[in-house]
Amino acid sequence: QIFVKTLTGKTITLEVEPSDTIENVKAKIQDKEGIPPDQQRLIFAGKQLEDGRTLSDYNIQKESTLHLVL
């Protein structure tokens, strides 16, 4: 699982696999929060994550925290 922290300070927990794409993660966030993926920007280690890449591409491991910017 990974954590996604929103600007409001809320933390969302997501069940993911390293092979999941960023697009996939955004879809999971939409399921939980109702935020359309095209409004979501995910930041990890100061980098904006691209939809077509996977979590493992960015070396995002379990218990990692991503930041969600709208």
Rank of each mutant, 00 (worst) to 15 (best):
P37A: 15
D51P: 07
I60K: 01
T65M: 10
V69A: 08
Q39R: 12
E50H: 08
Q1N: 10
Q1Y: 15
Q1W: 15
P36G: 05
G9W: 04
L66I: 12
G46T: 04
Y58T: 02
S56M: 14
H67W: 13
K62H: 15
S64P: 03
L66T: 02
I12S: 02
Q61Y: 09
K26M: 06
K28T: 03
T54S: 08
L70T: 11
P18S: 10
T65Y: 08
L68R: 00
T8F: 13
G34Q: 06
E17H: 11
I29W: 00
L68G: 01
Q39H: 09
H67E: 11
L7Y: 15
D20Y: 07
R41A: 08
K5R: 14
K28C: 05
E63G: 14
P18E: 09
L49S: 00
Q40Y: 15
L68C: 03
H67V: 14
I12V: 06
E15P: 06
I12G: 00
G52Y: 11
K62T: 15
T21I: 04
V4F: 03
A45C: 14
K5F: 07
N59M: 08
R41D: 06
I60Q: 01
D31V: 13
I35M: 05
V4W: 01
A27G: 09
T21S: 08
T8P: 05
T11E: 06
E15V: 12
T65V: 14
I43R: 06
E63A: 10
R41S: 10
L14S: 01
V16R: 02
I35D: 02
P18A: 10
K26S: 01
F3W: 06
Q1H: 14
Q48V: 15
Q48F: 13
F3G: 02
L55M: 06
D51C: 06
T6F: 15
T11N: 06
N24W: 12
Q30A: 14
Y58Q: 03
Q61E: 10
L7N: 14
F44P: 00
Y58I: 03
K26T: 02
L42H: 00
N24R: 13
D20R: 02
D51T: 06
K28W: 05
S64C: 09
I12E: 01
L49M: 06
Q48R: 08
N24A: 14
P18D: 09
K47M: 14
Q61T: 13
T54N: 05
L68S: 01
Q39C: 14
K26F: 03
K5E: 07
G52Q: 11
L42Q: 00
K62W: 12
V69M: 13
D31Y: 10
S19N: 13
P36I: 05
Q39F: 09
R53D: 05
V69Y: 14
K62C: 13
G9P: 02
N24Q: 14
V16F: 15
P37I: 14
E50M: 10
Q30T: 10
T6V: 10
K62L: 14
T6K: 05
G34C: 07
L42G: 00
D38F: 12
I60F: 03
K26L: 04
Q30K: 11
L66N: 01
T6I: 12
L7S: 15
D38Q: 12
I12Y: 06
E63V: 04
E15L: 12
L55Q: 00
V25S: 00
N24H: 10
R41Q: 13
D57L: 03
K28E: 03
G34H: 07
D51R: 04
K32F: 08
D20Q: 04
V4L: 05
N59H: 09
R41W: 08
T65F: 07
I29H: 00
Y58P: 00
V25N: 00
S19A: 08
Q30W: 15
L55Y: 01
A45L: 12
E23T: 09
L68A: 02
N59W: 05
N59D: 09
A27I: 14
E15A: 10
V16C: 11
T11C: 15
L66P: 02
K5G: 03
E23L: 12
V69E: 11
L68K: 00
K47H: 12
G52R: 09
E33F: 11
I2F: 04
I60G: 01
I43W: 15
G9K: 04
L68T: 02
L70S: 10
A27K: 15
F3V: 05
L14A: 02
K26N: 01
I60V: 08
R41V: 15
G34N: 08
I29D: 00
G52A: 12
P36M: 06
T11R: 09
Q39E: 09
L42N: 00
S56D: 08
D38Y: 12
E17Q: 11
R53T: 06
A27V: 11
K32I: 13
G34S: 06
T6P: 04
Q39A: 08
V25Y: 02
L14E: 00
Q61V: 13
E17T: 10
Q48M: 12
P36E: 08
Q48E: 14
V25T: 03
L66S: 01
H67F: 14
T13W: 07
Q61W: 08
K10I: 09
D38H: 15
D57M: 06
K47N: 11
I60T: 02
E33A: 10
T54M: 10
T11V: 14
S56A: 13
L49H: 00
Y58F: 04
D57W: 12
T6D: 06
H67A: 07
Q1A: 09
V69R: 09
T21M: 07
A45N: 15
S56R: 11
A27P: 00
R41K: 09
P36N: 07
Q40P: 01
E63C: 15
L49W: 01
E23V: 08
G46S: 05
A27Q: 13
I60C: 03
F3I: 06
T21P: 05
T6Q: 07
D20L: 05
Q40A: 05
L42A: 00
T8I: 08
T11Y: 10
T21Q: 04
E15Y: 14
K26P: 00
L68E: 01
D31M: 12
L66D: 01
V4M: 02
I60R: 01
E50S: 07
N24I: 14
T6E: 04
S19K: 08
V4C: 04
T13E: 07
G9Y: 04
T8W: 13
I43N: 05
L55W: 03
V69W: 10
Q30D: 05
I29L: 07
Q1S: 11
P18C: 11
T13L: 10
K5V: 15
K47P: 01
E23Q: 12
I35G: 02
N59I: 04
V16N: 02
R41T: 13
E50R: 07
E23F: 15
K28G: 03
R41G: 06
N59K: 10
P36V: 06
V4D: 01
E17K: 09
N24Y: 14
F3A: 04
K10L: 10
E23R: 15
Q30I: 03
N59F: 08
A45P: 01
F44H: 06
K62F: 15
E33Y: 09
E50D: 09
T21D: 03
Q30S: 11
A27M: 15
T21Y: 08
L55K: 00
K47Q: 15
R53E: 04
L55D: 00
V25M: 05
Y58C: 05
D51I: 05
G52S: 13
E63F: 14
K28N: 03
E15H: 13
T65Q: 06
L55I: 10
D51K: 04
D31N: 10
I35C: 06
S64Y: 09
I29F: 03
G52H: 13
V4R: 00
